[in-house]
Amino acid sequence: MLKCENIYKKYGSVVALDDVSLEFRPGEIVGLLGENGAGKTTLMKTILSYIRPNKGRVTLDGEKIGPNNIDRIAFATSEHSFFGGLDALEHKAFYHMQFERFNEKRFDSLLEFFELPKKTKIKNFSTGQKNQFEVILALSQGADYILMDEPFAGNDIFNREDFYKVLLGILDDNECLILSTHLIEEIKNFISRAVLLHKGQLIGDVTTLELDDKNIDLMEYMRKQYSYRSDRVIETLMKNEK
């Protein structure tokens, strides 16, 4: 279990994450949803310890994230964090050396699925291809928790639809996928759980089975959570006026 406890992060005077507590479990496909600046990327980077929170902690099966367990978490940043001068096959060789559980079969099949060239330097890939390649690396690392920040940027709708199918086909029952996205309509049947951030606060956390039982749509749920929150904002404002 990947556990975030009371994460609080401030950039200058801006609160990016406000006391966020969350748990991610094996087998989940989690949609991390929220407007731009809601804190999605900050949360992901905090999990990977790229960002040090002002308060709170992240643990993986009870242990702090560090050199011993960081390989169990993968992250496709959409910031193109790889070696521009190396081609796909050279990246594969490097990942093979770095990660004991590197999944070569998955890497090869995904490279084929996206029709990416094997021997072109990554810096000469298009933006869409770079995003795809990052996703491939994250999925092939052999991690238990796979994080993706806007992984579908630069992919057209047909490619994305196929991509959802491929993901559903290849993910093991013990892998956990956490992805941030704006494409709510598209991913609502694909995810098993939706986590909703708004202005750095956790304002919603629901499984899609719970939504089914209540017979409400993800979009409707999000609207409710948002308006509940804005009611509270108004309430606070009115109290302060008195």
């Binding site: 496909i29 639809e161 959802y164 199918k165 559903l168 086909g169 049947n189 694909f190 995810i191 098993s192 499984t207 899609t208 089975l209 089914d212």
Partner: peptide
């Protein structure tokens, strides 16, 4: 799994 993939729907569903 096959049906989940075919329909692009989460396995839990």
């Amino acid at each position: 799994r096959v049906l989940s993939t075919l329909l692009s729907v989460n396995p839990n569903t």
